[in-house]
C-alpha cells in the first residue's frame, strides 16, 4: 500500500508538473504577447506596461515558468504586494491573489459535486440493482427506459424546468443559493437541493444502466452459479457475491466521471446562478484572466488526479484479487 501510494503520488506530481508547464506555455508562449491578451480591447500603453511589469514578461519564458513554479512553493512578490506560499499569481482583473479567489469558490463546488455524487450513487446503483434483479419485468423496463431518456437530458434543459416547477410557479423552494455548511447546515442543504437533484437525475441514469448491465454479467459468472448451487439464498448470493464483482466497473466509471462532474459543475453553476469554481473558470476565460485560469486548471487537474488515486486504491478494497504494486 505504501509503495503504491509513493509511486502514484510521485507520478501524479510529475503529471501536474507537465500540466502546469503545458498550460503555462500555452498561455504565455504560444499566442501573442499575453499582456495584450490580458489587456483586451481598448488597451492603453500604460496598462500594458503595468501588466508587463506584474508578470515579469520581459524575462525569457522558461525563467518566467521557473518563477511561477517557485512562487507556488515559496511565495512571490508582485507590484501589488507580497503573495504568500501557495502563490498562483495575481488576477489581471481585480488584483486579488488567485489562491484566495480559488479557495473562496472551492467549497461551493465541492459541496455541489460530492452532494450530487452521494445522491446519484445511491439512487443509481439502487435502481440498477433492482432492474438487474427483476430483469425482464415491467420494473426493469421502467428503470432502463427511464434512465435512457433521463440521461439524454442536459442540465441546462432540465435545470430551468425544475426551477420553473418548484420555484417560479409553486414557490415550494427558494432559488438555489450557497450558504457555507459551517454557518447554517439547514440552509446549505436547502439551497443546494435543486442543483443536486438535477445533477443527480442526469448522472443517475448512467449509473443505473451501468450497474444493471454489470450486475447481469456478474449473475452469469460461475462463482455466482456455484454459490447458488450450494443452496445459498438467492438474496445472499445477489448481495454478497454478484454485487461485489459488479462494483468494479462502476468504480472505473466513477473515477472518470469526477472530472466530468467538475466541469459539469460549470454548467450547473451557470444554470442556477451559483458562483463556484466552474463559474470562476468560465469568467476568467471570458475576461482572459490568465493567472486565474492557470490556477483553476492546475487545481482541478490535481483534484482529478487525487480522485483517480483514491479510486485505484478502492479497487483493492473491493476486489482482493487486485494487487496495488
Amino acid at each position: 500500500m505504501l509503495r503504491f501510494l509513493i509511486r502514484r503520488v510521485s507520478g501524479a506530481a510529475l503529471i501536474l508538473l507537465l500540466i502546469s508547464a503545458f498550460t503555462f506555455f500555452m498561455y504565455f508562449a504560444i499566442p501573442q504577447d499575453p499582456a495584450t491578451l490580458a489587456c483586451g480591447k481598448n488597451c492603453t500603453p500604460d496598462a500594458l506596461a503595468i501588466i508587463h511589469k506584474n508578470l515579469g514578461l520581459d524575462d525569457p519564458v522558461p525563467l518566467q515558468y521557473w518563477h511561477y513554479l517557485s512562487g507556488i512553493f515559496a511565495g512571490r512578490d508582485f507590484g501589488v504586494g507580497h503573495c504568500d506560499a501557495p502563490c498562483f499569481g495575481v488576477s489581471f482583473r481585480n488584483n486579488q491573489m488567485v489562491w484566495d479567489t480559488i479557495m473562496d469558490r472551492l467549497p461551493l463546488t465541492l459541496s455541489l459535486t460530492f452532494g450530487g455524487l452521494v445522491v446519484f450513487l445511491f439512487v443509481g446503483l439502487g435502481a440498477g440493482l433492482m432492474a438487474a434483479r427483476y430483469r425482464g419485468t415491467w420494473l426493469d423496463k421502467i428503470f432502463s427506459g427511464g434512465s435512457l431518456v433521463l440521461s439524454s437530458f442536459q442540465i441546462y434543459f432540465l435545470g430551468p424546468i425544475v426551477l420553473g416547477i418548484f420555484v417560479y410557479s409553486t414557490g415550494w423552494l427558494d432559488k438555489p443559493k450557497y450558504v457555507p455548511i459551517t454557518q447554517d447546515p439547514g440552509g446549505w442543504f436547502m439551497g443546494l437541493l435543486i442543483p443536486w437533484i438535477v445533477m443527480a437525475t442526469i448522472f443517475t441514469a448512467n449509473y443505473t444502466r451501468m450497474s444493471r448491465s454489470s450486475m447481469i454479467e456478474q449473475l452469469q459468472e460461475e462463482h455466482v452459479r456455484a454459490a447458488k448451487a450450494k443452496g445459498m439464498s438467492s438474496r445472499y448470493v445477489f448481495y454478497r457475491y454478484a454485487w461485489r464483482g459488479s462494483v468494479i466497473p462502476i468504480i472505473t466509471i466513477l473515477g472518470m466521471d469526477i472530472g466530468a462532474l467538475l466541469s459539469g459543475g460549470m454548467v450547473t453553476e451557470l444554470t442556477f446562478g451559483l458562483a463556484g469554481f466552474g463559474r470562476l473558470a468560465r469568467d476568467s476565460v471570458i475576461l482572459k484572466d490568465l493567472p486565474v485560469l492557470m490556477g483553476v486548471m492546475i487545481i482541478s487537474a490535481a483534484f482529478i488526479i487525487i480522485c483517480n488515486i483514491v479510486v485505484d486504491a478502492m479497487y483493492a478494497v473491493v476486489d482482493p484479487r487486485v494487487r496495488l504494486s
Binding site: M26, L37, A260, L262, S263, V296
Partner: peptide, 17 residues
Amino acid sequence: FMLALPNQLFMVAAMPV
C-alpha cells in the same frame, strides 16, 4: 497525459488561445 487533463474545462480554456 491528455486523459489527466480536466477535459471540458480545458476545452473552455483553450478556446481563447
